[in-house]
Computed example of a mutant assay.
Amino acid sequence: MRAIQITEFGGPEVLTEVELPDPVAGPGELLVEVDRAGLNYADTHQAENSYLAKMELPLVPGGEVVGRVGPRRVVALTAGGGGYAQKAVVPGATSFDVPDGVDDLTALSMVVQGATAWLLLRRSAHLEPGESVVVHAAAGGVGTLAVQLAKRWGAGRVIATASSEEKRELALELGADVAVDSTAPDMTEALRAANDGRRVDVVLDMTGGAVTDQSLAALAPFGRLAFYGMASRQQPTPVPPGTLLARSAAVAGMWLPHAFRLPGRVVHRAMTELFDLVLAGDLRAVPGGEYGLSEVRRAHEDLRARRTTGKLVLDPSR
């Protein structure tokens, strides 16, 4: 089968197209004929071995696939890679049947980005109706869905941040009340100005560095910052507990794999609700571009340069 393999860690240049033997499913696993694989910013960390879970070489990257298991159509998370290929082995426990009427791109958008946005708002930030919500990187895969979900679930004001006029216009089209330039020199002031001079209640942040620091400073009493990535590759300033006490603020981290350990099949409930919203026309995925296996280096370059919007997918047939 055709696949992308990494034999040394690094940037996009380490992604190499190869022929590999077909993988074999073990107990509790499924062998998926891959129609599309998801491309995520986390994959760029995986390639350079800076991800939360450390990788081992050789590695076929890719954390999500949609395709066929016999007559079934499924979308699934892989176990540590394997998605950038024509066939992939996935755990049955992280696989979901795709309803009729949900296309490949939308299914892939829901299994990582949609579930992440659902968990951030429902479990990490515990969004209450009427609260203000800041969505950083609002034109990205998680951001485009988080803007829609926050608005649907009763946020009083959704404040989107994005780096270009085109991306900010997209966020407004998706339901954001106001869009802020993510390159603003003082994000604290920019967020308060976007909220009519008031501090904000919830921030969804995957940037890191100064953006995280300044977003935390913009929180209202009992505000929550939900941190789920570090696209800038810069660590935020450590937050002493006394600082949180002084502001009655909370900071929550969220990594999707941990959600599968929660009781009550939380991720399955999230996927059911997300698919229902899609089928009802109340939630839509934003296409961000499709790449062939031979174009995977360009895909990673585009991700790292923040040139993309919405959901990116990989077609293993070309």
Results as ranks from 00 to 15, higher is better:
residue 248 S to Y: 07
residue 306 R to Q: 15
residue 226 A to H: 04
residue 177 D to F: 01
residue 269 R to F: 00
residue 277 L to Y: 10
residue 278 V to P: 13
residue 274 L to C: 11
residue 292 G to C: 05
residue 276 D to A: 12
residue 268 H to I: 00
residue 249 A to Q: 14
residue 200 V to N: 06
residue 311 K to A: 01
residue 215 S to V: 05
residue 227 F to Q: 11
residue 188 T to D: 08
residue 300 H to N: 08
residue 300 H to W: 13
residue 253 G to I: 07
residue 273 E to C: 05
residue 177 D to Y: 03
residue 266 V to Y: 15
residue 294 S to K: 10
residue 201 D to P: 11
residue 287 P to C: 05
residue 175 G to V: 09
residue 277 L to Q: 10
residue 247 R to N: 08
residue 287 P to A: 02
residue 187 M to A: 06
residue 174 L to Q: 02
residue 308 T to P: 10
residue 181 D to W: 14
residue 278 V to R: 14
residue 248 S to K: 04
residue 233 R to C: 00
residue 287 P to I: 01
residue 223 G to C: 07
residue 229 G to C: 10
residue 273 E to A: 15
residue 234 Q to N: 08
residue 209 G to K: 13
residue 176 A to E: 09
residue 183 T to Q: 10
residue 199 R to E: 15
residue 196 D to L: 06
residue 178 V to R: 08
residue 262 L to S: 03
residue 303 L to D: 04
residue 207 T to P: 00
residue 184 A to D: 14
residue 238 P to N: 07
residue 283 L to Q: 11
residue 306 R to Y: 04
residue 234 Q to R: 15
residue 288 G to N: 10
residue 175 G to A: 01
residue 205 D to S: 13
residue 240 P to N: 06
residue 208 G to M: 06
residue 264 G to M: 05
residue 304 R to W: 00
residue 177 D to A: 02
residue 240 P to G: 07
residue 175 G to Y: 09
residue 299 A to V: 07
residue 308 T to E: 14
residue 258 H to F: 12
residue 181 D to H: 14
residue 178 V to H: 03
residue 261 R to D: 03
residue 184 A to M: 06
residue 277 L to N: 11
residue 259 A to E: 08
residue 189 E to V: 11
residue 283 L to D: 02
residue 310 G to D: 12
residue 298 R to T: 14
residue 260 F to S: 02
residue 179 A to P: 03
residue 240 P to W: 10
residue 252 A to Q: 15
residue 174 L to I: 08
residue 313 V to H: 07
residue 301 E to R: 12
residue 196 D to T: 01
residue 182 S to M: 06
residue 311 K to L: 06
residue 182 S to L: 04
residue 201 D to T: 01
residue 251 V to C: 01
residue 303 L to K: 04
residue 237 T to D: 03
residue 175 G to M: 03
residue 253 G to S: 08
residue 182 S to E: 13
residue 198 R to I: 00
residue 288 G to F: 10
residue 252 A to L: 04
residue 178 V to F: 07
residue 308 T to Q: 11
residue 299 A to P: 14
residue 255 W to L: 12
residue 261 R to M: 11
residue 310 G to N: 09
residue 289 G to M: 09
residue 201 D to S: 13
residue 242 G to C: 00
residue 301 E to F: 05
residue 289 G to L: 02
residue 190 A to R: 02
residue 198 R to T: 01
residue 198 R to M: 00
residue 307 R to H: 15
residue 216 L to R: 06
residue 209 G to N: 09
residue 234 Q to T: 15
residue 238 P to I: 01
residue 295 E to S: 15
residue 179 A to K: 04
residue 270 A to W: 02
residue 188 T to A: 03
residue 192 R to I: 08
residue 220 A to I: 11
residue 204 L to W: 06
residue 212 T to D: 07
residue 208 G to A: 07
residue 200 V to P: 07
residue 217 A to V: 02
residue 198 R to E: 15
residue 182 S to H: 13
residue 206 M to R: 02
residue 196 D to H: 10
